[in-house]
Design a protein around this nucleic acid. Sequence first.
DNA 1: AAAGATACATTGACAGGCGAGGTATCTTAT
DNA 2: ATAAGATACCTCGCCTGTCAATGTATCTTT
Lengths: 106, 106
Amino acid sequence: MSIASDLIRGHTESIILSHLHEHDSYGYQINKSIQEKTNGQYELKEATLYSAFRRLEESQCIKSYWGDEEKGARRRYYSITQIGRALLEQNKLDWQHAKELIDKLI
Amino acid sequence: MSIASDLIRGHTESIILSHLHEHDSYGYQINKSIQEKTNGQYELKEATLYSAFRRLEESQCIKSYWGDEEKGARRRYYSITQIGRALLEQNKLDWQHAKELIDKLI
DNA sequence: AAAGATACATTGACAGGCGAGGTATCTTAT
DNA sequence: ATAAGATACCTCGCCTGTCAATGTATCTTT
């Protein structure tokens, strides 16, 4: 891993929303995708991932449904909602803004 | 203010160290400086600031001494140590790295 | 005399990350 | 056959950083 929790904190939800913005997905796959995209430099801890799912679903940013796997472990799929899309857009703006401020300050 | 706590979280110490890297300073001045540099878009909350001072001094990244004000409120000045300088450099590297990763992921 | 700025400090609540633990299924190697 | 490892889900409770609220004291401006 190689990135401190406190640097990623606050981005967990955006990362999930961004992935779901491309296509519906499930927890395990999202995490694998993160690892691939970052060449193994980052991964979400499972407890972090699932608690983020809970928050996002509660705030109606995502919805979930069970996949219809014939075999293998069951998968709970998530899809992003309009509310989620709006939050993602706002979070992206906030991130661009935060980057500038932090670059000024350190 | 206009930047979420969770986006700045983990940068508080770097911001303080960066300021002290320029010259010794005290809490109130550091915060004023942050507000100026960001055109009022960001400020550290006092409780956040002083708890960061405590952590940084405990980890020997900064040292403190009382100013010799003839008048006005007393000031506790801080200076950065070698350990603090090293941490600042590392934090800067981590930040560059984190920026790239987050940009990839959201 | 009151209000506001300067300057410090503490307490306790809150929220997100995560280590540790648990369940169940399928595949691969021995 | 059996063990190991991958896939896939989930929860509990701790830790840590942020911050609202509160308190102290001094100086300046109205």
